[in-house]
Structure formats: C-alpha cells, structure tokens
Write a protein that binds this DNA or RNA. Structure first.
Lengths: 338, 338
DNA sequence: CTGTTAGCGCCTTCAC
DNA sequence: GTGAAGGCGCTAACAG
C-alpha cells in the first residue's frame, strides 16, 4: 500500500504538501496540486485513516448504541444516521446494548476507547446520573429517546406522554369505556410516559383506571400476545385495547382473531410507533406515529453541527406524535356488546 | 486522558512493560504486572485503540456492508455479527449499499480505507468479477448471500434453488395447479435461484409455467401488493401464490383480503424467509425458513478464524432451507373454485 | 505557497 | 523478565 511518502517522492514535493492537497485547507498552487493528484492516481494511493486519526486526534467516526439491531424499530433510525454521517464522510461504529445496564456501559466504554468523536446513544437501562456524568466527559454525546432535564439540549425525544394521551383520547372519543392498556416495560421512560398520557386521557373522560386491565408487556409481539391472554382471562368487558407499541398490538390482535373475536367489530385496537408491517395486515392498524427515523437524522445532524462544525444544519430536539387513523378501531355505538 | 507513558511512570516501569501487560503475550513477573494494573486503575487508563491500530497494523475492526439497515431481513444478521465480533473485542463498522452498484463500491472503498481487518459483504449490485478481484486484495473478504464458484470458500449462502423448489413442491403436493409466482428482482441471484427452483417443481408435476402468472416484484410489501393487483387483473384462475419473500406475501395477502378473498380458503399462499412478523397475522404464513442470523454468525466466525486466528470456531458455508408449514395454504380439494 | 520537523500513543524488535 | 529506541502514516505548527 502506497503511503503519503511514496506520493511525495513521485510528485517531487514534500510530505506536507501532499497532506495539504488531501485536506485542501491550505492553498496549494494548481500545478503542484495536479502533480500530487497524478501521483496519487498512479500509485492507487488510499489514505490510511488510522494514521490520520492518530495525528489529528479526530477519528471521523461516531459510535452508535442501540438496544437491538433487529426488529422494526431501530432500523429506520440507523438508516438515517448512517446516511447522514456517511454523506459527511464519517464512519459509524455500532454496538448493541440489549437494554442491559452492564452491556450498555460496556458498549459505551468500547465506543469511547475506539476514539469516537461523538456518541449517539439510545440507551435505556442506565441511570440519569450516569448519563449526566457521561455528558460532562470530553466526548460529546447525544441521546435519543431519553429526556433528562439538566442536559435536555443533548436529548432528541418524542413527546410520549402526549402520544399516550392521543391514543387513548381517540379511543375514548369513539365512545369506549371498557378499555384495557398494554404497556411497555415500565423501567423504560417512554413506556412510563405513554402510560401517564393514557391515564390523563382516562381522567379527562372520567373513566376510572382499572389496574386489572393494564398489563406490563415488553414492546414485542409475544409480549402483546401474553398480555391479551391475560386480559381476556380477567373476564371483564373490554371493547378496546390501547397498546404502547404496534408490535404488541399485533401480538394481541392475533390472539383475539384466533379466539374468533372480530377486530374492530368486537374489539378495537390502537397501536403506537407506526411501524410498516401492520399496514399490510387486516385490519390495518390505527396508531400513533413515532418519527424514529427523523429523530435518528436529527441526532446525526446534532453531531455534524456540534462536533464537525457543519453550519448548514439545524437541529430540533422535541418531536410530536401524530394520530394515524386506519381500520382497527371503530365507534362503540356500532359495536356488538360482549 | 492518561497514556501508556503516564502509567509507566506511575508504576515505575518502562513503556514496553506496560504494553506487555496489556497484551499479555510476553511473560511479565506477577509483581510488576500488579504494579502496572494498579497504576492503570488509579489513572483510569483506557488504551487508545487508534494508536494500537497504527502501531500494530491491525485495526480490530471489521466492516460490514448490507443493502439496508431497516426492514426485517438484515437486523437478525447484524445482531449475530455484532455479538460474535464484540465478544471477541472487535469493532463493527457498518455501511449500507442500497443495492446500488456505485454506492456499494463506494462503501467498500470506505470500509477499506478505514483499515478494516476484514470485510463481511452482503452485496448485490456489483459483478462477480469485481468481487473476485476484491477477494484477491490484501484485506480478507467474506460474502453472505452470494455464491461465486471460484471463490466459494468465501461464500456463506442459502441453497435458494432448493428453497424455491420446496415452496412450490409443497403447494403442488396440495393439489394446486393454477399457481402464480411473485418473484424477487431478477438482478439478484437469490431471486433467480428461487424462481429456478419454482420452475423445477412445476416441471416435476407437469404443470406448465405461465409467464403471465409470474410477476417480478422487489421483495418488499408494496412489491407484493403491486404484484397481486397485476395477477388478479389477468382474470385467470389462481388457487395459490408462491412468493419469493414473506414481505411480498404479506403485501399480496393484504390485497386479497381487501377484495374479500379468503386465505387460505379461496387462495393459498406460501412465503419465503420466515421473518417474525407474519407469524402474528391471520392466517399465519407458511414459509421457507431462511437462517439469515445463522449465516451472519457464520460469516463472523469465518473472520474470527481466518483473520484473528481463533481456533475454536468451525465454519460452514452452505445452508439448507426448511419448510415451515402454518396456516396460509391448504389442499385444493377443499378449496372453493374461483 | 512550500518544506522541515516534531510528535500523536502505542508496538516491537533488539539488547541487557 | 525488562528497558531503550525506532518506527506505524499522517498532521500541524513553524519557518522560509
């Protein structure tokens, strides 16, 4: 592999000049520049980014930590991050934290030791204190899906309380009174916020919250199935189920259909996240939009702006949920009693 | 940030000794070793991996290129790769090629210049020649989902022709004769192989292949929807549809359900890939298992074995498809005619 | 505009 | 078993 030295010899200039044409920050005469370019081409020169990183103390790589790499949720986010960053010629190094405190911390250490210029973290199991401390260290960090008051300018998040409210408010506006709730795991802030919004809507409509009709799931399909089995086993009337994720809604619906319940005729559903798949099932799932890809893009922009001094980008940190009404919920008046 | 130098001073030993205890390749007396370890702990020392890479000419990072980061397909694969590699303390640098030749080549360049020790490529749009040339360069490369005879020892792939055969054979064994086929994009080898297997099964059952009942989709949900619209518009009898991906099957099924067709009573379906979601819809999709996560794991192992000299792993390159029979297809005899 | 010269933080012979 | 010293390939002042 040719080095900058080989190029400099071939072009008859100094190392520094070659370095200059590569980074074109200092002016180099067109003539020398061309000589260098020719030499590079002739040698098939490719800069050694490791050496560049060491010398410049800038690795041009940003670490991205997500809970998991599979599933419908993080893919779109990663896509946006990768696209935005690679366009700016930055590398993305990924790690998965699996919602486990130990693994998340290890992953952060890992990314930090890799010399990442910045970290984008969708991190769930660690404490606020840990993150506040982390944010004070030398490597800039931005958080997705997490809101911590004292470092809110580093947080990119969705107004989950509002989303939770909107979902339930919609169901209640349809006349439902016997509504169950399938929650996400309550150690996660977004799950707690969505539930909070749910309760606020209930209160507004003066419908009492029944703990027996609230089940803590895990955001996944099978969590929704388990939840639905449980709810049905209560033998209480249920005309609608509000789910804290589309995946859980899908799992729950599949249980209902298996038991011969018709959706939405016998029981209404609303999900949360607006992942692609449930748009292709029957009935098409009504849900709350979660602009996860936008949030990914925004986190990447934050890094570009704060770390790489890109002036052209604007960043926004708070995102609004939005109701997407499709076919899985209908007004109670036309429902059959159950 | 403390450096190896700070540690050496604090421990009262030389740089080299510190380096030795880090890499524990040479023997160091337990006493000095402990001194060094203590100093490291006291200083909160974290090795600079960039410097390590430059000096050792080994970046401890492997580049992974996939078509896309979202969707149900690559997530499981990446999960396995990330887990296997991080366990071995290697970094994963990702890039997306978007099934576009130019982008794929750029991404490879990008990964190469990053000094990756090896590349894992799920690459679709570039020619065999390009890959053969690439495999002769100094950076080891392994391919997923691609079979090239002359470099087959670097290929991890699924027997797609067989899978295509199995899906159709199953449908035919159920007595169907009017079977449509929704193919993947034919510039992709796996799509071509699956179609080939489909035709072989047809031939075996002496059912003629009708080009009018074969539609080239894109492996995605909307590709399946489009395909189904097209097929239905032919006004030919169709009692079963074989789909080259679960996503397309889902899109196609949703079109049928919208038109009031019952699945599988009026029309049978079989998919391919066995992605999680269609297990939670009604009817549960029968499909061909694609052990994509296994293939990811295997590619990671190949790298561990070939590049990092891990003796403990065994690698296997060819994977067999498997039929997963669920509820979306039934025997023709009980079907209503349409 | 261009060349010279120190490092960046670590690994790795080579001696002792 | 341990220390000294020369790079790895490149960037970044500092001169000129």
């Amino acid at each position: 592999m040719a080095t900058i030295y080989d190029v400099s010899v071939m072009a008859g200039v100094s190392l520094a000049t070659v370095s200059r044409v590569m980074n074109d920050n200092t002016k180099v005469s067109d003539k020398t520049k061309q000589k260098v370019l020719d030499a590079m081409a002739a040698l098939g020169y490719r800069p050694n980014t490791i050496a560049q990183s060491l010398a410049s103390n800038c690795s041009n790589s940003v670490g991205v930590l997500v809970s998991q790499l599979d599933g419908p949720y993080y893919g779109p986010m990663m896509t946006e991050i990768e696209t935005a960053l690679r366009t700016a010629n930055k590398h993305v190094i990924i790690a998965a934290g699996h919602s486990d405190e130990k693994q998340e911390k290890e992953a952060v250490e890992f990314l930090l030791s890799r010399g990442c210029d910045a970290l984008i973290l969708d991190i769930e199991a660690v404490s606020d204190e840990y993150l506040i401390k982390l944010s004070k260290a030398s490597t800039p960090v931005v958080f997705i899906n997490r809101y911590i008051e004292s470092i809110k300018e580093r947080c990119v998040y969705l107004e989950n309380e509002l989303g939770g409210y909107m979902a339930t408010q919609y169901i209640l506006s349809l006349g439902h009174k016997d509504v169950a709730y399938i929650s996400g795991p309550l150690y996660k802030l977004d799950a707690r916020d969505r539930l909070k919004g749910h309760k606020r809507a209930l209160q507004e409509y003066q419908v009492p919250f029944d703990p027996e009709l609230c089940f803590e799931g895990n955001f996944r399909e099978f969590g929704g199935s388990d939840a639905m089995e449980y709810l049905l086993s209560r033998n209480k009337p249920i005309t609608a189920v509000v789910c804290a994720s589309d995946q859980m809604a899908s799992g729950a619906i599949s249980v209902c259909l298996e038991r011969g319940l018709r959706v939405p005729d016998d029981i209404s559903f609303i999900g949360y996240d607006n992942i692609p798949f449930p748009q292709y099932i029957s009935p098409k799932l009504s849900t709350v939009n979660n602009p996860i890809h936008e949030m990914g893009k925004m986190a990447a922009r934050w890094v570009l702006q704060q770390v790489y001094n890109d002036k052209d980008v604007t960043v926004e940190s708070s995102f609004q949920p939005e109701l997407f009404i499709r076919d899985s919920a209908k007004a109670i008046s036309t429902n059959h009693d159950n």
